[in-house]
């Protein structure tokens, strides 16, 4: 009956998951601003109200994400790489490879049967192929990123998006718009470009089933379809896929509590 919290401070959103008895009992998602400590606190408070629990019921708070050191009220910090592995394993125990596409980075993580990281690879030099890339390009098409998921379905002739720079890709998209290309085809081209960058990372760790797709971009149906098609494998996507890092963090805290009794 131990309630634990994981708080995942990403580059665009803060997520919190509360876990009790192997179940996610509360969660929250809110955008981050410039005051990360407050954002982290708010994430926990919102998740608590979602679950109807009190702050004092929480036995451990674990921070993860690039802002993990801003979860100053927590007990532990773990990198999001470890957390995505653990969280994905929790949701899909047969997971061997996790693909996480977040706001500013993309990671491929290889995990063992216990959800422990064996190997990982991340985008390095720039933000090409990340959630932000999609965000910016959706903007260039005149959509919000939350709307574009189903839009590529039915694309017939996906365009080729070759620019690696997010900002230049935006102008490439604009030029396709100006040339009267079907937004379906442009989006399909964008998905293809992001998936091909993701595949390159997946190749580094080696692809084997099952593959679990996590992070904000996994909410996009078009991306999931494109990934499935290109991998030729089924891809797990949980309705909680944005919370995988937070779930993993909470589980790490639990494990730590069990290893070192209070």
């Amino acid at each position: 009956m131990t309630l634990v919290a994981g708080v995942d401070i990403g580059s665009t959103t803060a997520k919190c998951a509360l876990i009790e008895d192997g179940k996610v009992v509360g969660r929250s998602l809110n955008p981050v601003g410039v005051e990360l400590v407050k954002d982290a606190e708010r994430a926990l408070a919102l998740a608590l109200s979602d679950s109807g629990r009190e702050r004092r019921d929480v036995r451990a708070v674990t921070g993860t994400g690039y802002g993990r050191f801003k979860v100053t009220f927590g007990q532990f910090t773990v990198t999001e790489i470890g957390c995505h592995a653990k969280g994905a394993h929790f949701l899909f125990p047969a997971t061997r490879v996790v693909l996480d596409i977040g706001g500013q980075d993309t990671k491929a993580i290889k995990v063992d049967a216990n959800g422990v990281v064996i190997d990982f690879a991340m985008n390095d030099k720039c933000a090409a192929g990340t959630g932000r890339f999609l965000d910016v390009c959706a903007g260039a098409l005149g959509y919000d990123v939350s709307e574009i998921g189903p839009l590529s379905l039915g694309a017939r002739r996906p365009v080729k998006v070759t620019n690696t720079c997010t900002v230049f890709a935006e102008s490439e998209v604009s030029s396709y718009v100006a040339r009267g290309k079907d937004p379906k085809d442009i989006l399909a081209g964008l998905y293809g470009s992001i998936v091909s960058r993701s595949l390159s990372l997946l190749q580094r760790v080696g692809v084997e089933p099952e593959v679990t797709f996590t992070g904000g971009v996994s909410r996009n149906e078009g991306m999931v379809r494109t990934l499935r098609a290109r991998l030729g494998l089924p891809v797990n996507v949980s309705p909680l896929s944005q919370f995988v890092g937070a779930i993993g963090a909470a589980l790490y805290g639990l494990e730590r509590l069990e290893a070192v009794p209070a």
């Binding site: 580059s11 720039c126 900002v167």
Partner: peptide, 11 residues
């Protein structure tokens, strides 16, 4: 050198 990653730096 990346406009997008520069945002992280700003944050």
């Amino acid at each position: 050198v990346c406009a997008v990653l520069a945002e992280t730096e700003i944050i």
